[in-house]
Design a protein around this nucleic acid. Sequence first.
DNA 1: TTATTACTTGAGCGATCGCTCAAAAACCTT
DNA 2: AAGGTTTTTGAGCGATCGCTCAAGTAATAA
Lengths: 183, 183
Amino acid sequence: MTLFWVKGYSATSLKDLEQALQMRPGSIYAAFRSKEALFRAALDLYAGRMEAELTAMIADAPSALTALRSYLLSLGGLDHCEKPSTACMLVKSLLEIQMDRPELRNVVLAHLETVRRLLAQGFARAVAAGELPQDADPARLARRMQTYVFGLKIQAQRETDPEAMQRLAQDLADEISDLRRAA
Amino acid sequence: MTLFWVKGYSATSLKDLEQALQMRPGSIYAAFRSKEALFRAALDLYAGRMEAELTAMIADAPSALTALRSYLLSLGGLDHCEKPSTACMLVKSLLEIQMDRPELRNVVLAHLETVRRLLAQGFARAVAAGELPQDADPARLARRMQTYVFGLKIQAQRETDPEAMQRLAQDLADEISDLRRAA
DNA sequence: TTATTACTTGAGCGATCGCTCAAAAACCTT
DNA sequence: AAGGTTTTTGAGCGATCGCTCAAGTAATAA
């Protein structure tokens, strides 16, 4: 998963995978059907963890809105050391995979949609808890939040100044907070 | 350029390039030094156009802030037909190119920095024109704006509902407008 | 026209790609 | 230990990769 995450699908060769998995080609093709199927498994693993993390983060917090805000803030502290890549594997895959591989693309799209739905659930909880106006549209807010996350993780990929990243995450998190007092 | 834009660097083969350029391998390697150098030329062409477009958009408009807002709004109408890809070639390249190709990476980073600087100039003009508070930080606003653009273009890559995209762009554009009355 | 230079061609190089499969090794069961 | 089953192995397949270069073609100069 880490290998695919960092190098992308087509830039990861079977030689790389053999070394990372400590398996010989025959075993790899016995366990998975193909390189594409292996990649799909890696995608599922990655997305599953992300979805679990997001679910827990929202469910455990007393305030859903604060949890969402904290998540954005945490992206501002993304270190290049703690994780294989600061960029999102789903986004990297979305940009790499073309229409000529519809199956893979649909897997990516499905996971992105699941994440968006989780975010929408969080916003819906915030609305139900009275943290947001009753007429706020969770789906719309979720799409906006996800757009922030996309942008933030890409900025993290290029930004070298930690303070600038921190400020940026703060600015975006404030947008979420400001929804509270918005009409 | 279009080929690299759509397929990415490593997924574009010389056979593809031969057909697109209507040149045989020898001529390609006489005109450019290598596949990497050709890609660099494509990057420069793409970024140059984007930078020119952005410069003109800001310079021609009576209000810099309105121009920046309009730019975000226009991203909401990105059609999958009019352009080769709705995603930004610079971002795609940033996510694809690893540290093991520092030259290419630096080219991408330099172009992204140039775009950010152009946006900062736009915000600086807005401050000078009194459209924004005097203590607004153009560099910070530019980084935020660029983050919006990154996120929007990625959403455009997956979103199928034009209305949702339009609403999303509207939401983000409104964030820029709201800066006017912010303290 | 002929000699010289500049450019184009495409066969094909060595390397690597994703992948297969017969043989070997490891693991059971009796 | 012996026989049967499952798993692992790695040599190597055909295809394609980025790239080279001797030979051929076109353009220019004398």
